[in-house]
Design a protein around this nucleic acid. Structure first.
Length: 420
RNA sequence: GUGAAUGUAGCUCAGUAGGUUAGAGCAUCUGGUUGUGGCCCAGAAGGUCGGGAGUUCGAUCCUCCUCAUUCACCCCA
């Protein structure tokens, strides 16, 4: 017996259908425009990289590397779960830091993580990834956040900015010891997940959602009070930059990052409209990562990623609808064999002359084709039947005003007639 | 990896306390006009009721298994 294969996209992989694509383009166009104003250059990167690149940058012990990567084990390559590592690899590989000491780069594309899908979370998802490489100035941190805020504001969606500092290799270890001893004292009161977290990633306990854990952690030592002088100065600088640029933010001393490479500044733009996924945009500073990957010594860097699916969901949810005009200039109706023949060539000529033109090839009735033209939102319809061929003039109808006129059956005359 | 909910037409959903040919709205197609769209009217097409097994004279409905989807946990954009 023949089994019929049910053809279906993979779990967590989604088609973006015509109709929705327009929204995506709007989002990407708006973003490119904003990034360009801030003097960023686009870079396009491969989707596959050596597995080692991600293991080393994201961190061996992270969930992403441990269990979420799509890896071709035999070839030691992995489909990127995020873009920063790839972008840094390209930056180092091509010595971009030589040409320009500070590089401002962004890339847009699909990322892959093998997680259980849910609202705002897919296995193939899309991110815009923005990075400033080679500057450790806190004003750059603030500028980057201000740029994201500008993008959200121009898209018309409301999100809030949360800010934290994670310290650096100088001050974090000492803080970590303090935090661990604090947690150890109330381990019994914490949930199972937090007990596990206390050994894998103690800072995660700080942002557990369970109310009981939150109460326990209320009085936990804050990293912000344990920053070293350099980190403190940097953090102050970031905040005064935000104030100068009029960017609203709130401090969240419990905010943690999932990727190992972050230090100092971290931030998230969050919303309550995405179910349990609150982050639309997240990022931070990663001084030291560039060097770790073989780049210039002490090369500083900061960047963030925006989840495009989440952005699109927000736009749909917050009902930011925008009118999409017709982009079909003309629908040509060729009646009968001769009419269709003549139309076929005319349509092609007009397309060469940069008009968007459609016609039907199924031999349908005039009425049926008028309906099609209407549905396609064509600005004009041209009717070519036996009478018109004889006279050498077609009937051109303006679909909005309903006015009809005779036009010579020549592409240049037609192009002019539909261009008014 | 864990838990819960849901699978009936292309889409959104009714429905049967188990009983002949399973319904609606939208969308599609045809017609109402020798060659004129939107509105309206008429008609047509479209379903192995997710799949398999079981109970039963009889299952879309009950039971079990399985697959899929969604939401949530974990984690994250």
């Amino acid at each position: 017996m023949e089994t019929v294969l049910k053809i279906q996209a993979l779990k967590g992989f989604k088609d973006i259908l015509p109709g929705e694509v327009e929204l995506w383009k709007y989002v990407e166009d708006t973003a490119r425009d904003v990034f360009q104003r801030f003097n960023f250059s686009e870079i396009r990167l491969p989707i596959l990289e050596k597995t080692e690149l991600f293991a080393r940058s994201i961190g061996e012990a992270t969930d992403i590397v441990e269990k979420e990567m799509y890896t071709f084990v035999d070839k030691q390559v992995t489909m990127r779960p995020e873009a920063t590592a790839s972008l840094l690899r390209a930056y180092i590989e091509h010595g971009l830091y030589v040409q320009k000491p500070v590089q401002r780069l962004f890339t847009i594309g699909p990322m892959f993580r093998h997680e259980r899908p849910q609202k705002g979370r897919l296995r193939q998802f899309h991110q815009m990834d923005i990075e400033i490489l080679g500057s450790g100035n806190p004003l750059v941190d603030a500028e980057l956040m201000a740029m994201a805020a500008m993008l959200f504001s121009e898209l018309g969606i409301s999100v809030s900015l949360e800010l934290n500092s994670l310290g650096c290799p100088q001050c974090r270890p000492a803080y970590r010891v303090q935090l661990l001893s604090f947690i150890k004292d109330r381990l019994d009161a914490l949930c199972e997940d937090c007990k596990r977290r206390s050994s894998t990633n103690p800072m995660r306990v700080l942002d557990c959602k369970k109310s009981n854990c939150r109460e326990q952690v209320e009085q936990a030592p804050s990293i912000l009070e344990h920053l070293c002088d350099d980190c403190k100065t940097h953090f102050t600088g970031v905040q005064s930059g935000l104030q100068q640029l009029n960017v609203d933010y709130s401090l969240n001393k419990f905010m943690v990052r999932g990727l190992d490479y972050y230090c100092r500044t971290t931030f998230e733009f969050t919303t309550t409209d995405l179910g349990s996924q609150s982050a639309v945009c997240a990022g931070g500073r990663y001084d030291g990562l560039i060097e770790k990957l073989g780049g210039p010594k002490k090369g500083p860097g900061i960047g963030f990623a925006i989840g495009i699916e989440r952005l699109v969901l927000l736009l749909l949810q917050q009902e930011k609808v925008f009118a999409e005009g017709s982009d079909l200039d003309l629908f040509v109706i060729g009646l009968g064999e001769k009419g269709e023949q003549l139309s076929y060539g005319l349509v092609h000529e007009m397309r060469k002359q940069r008009r968007s033109v459609a016609m039907d090839h199924e031999g349908r009735s005039l009425k049926s084709q008028m309906k099609q033209a209407n549905k396609a939102d064509a600005k004009y319809v041209l009717i070519i039947g036996d009478n018109e061929i004889e006279r050498g003039k077609g009937v051109l109808k303006n679909m909005v005003t309903q006015q009809q006129q005779d036009v010579k059956l020549e592409s240049s005359a037609l192009v002019e007639a539909v261009s008014s």
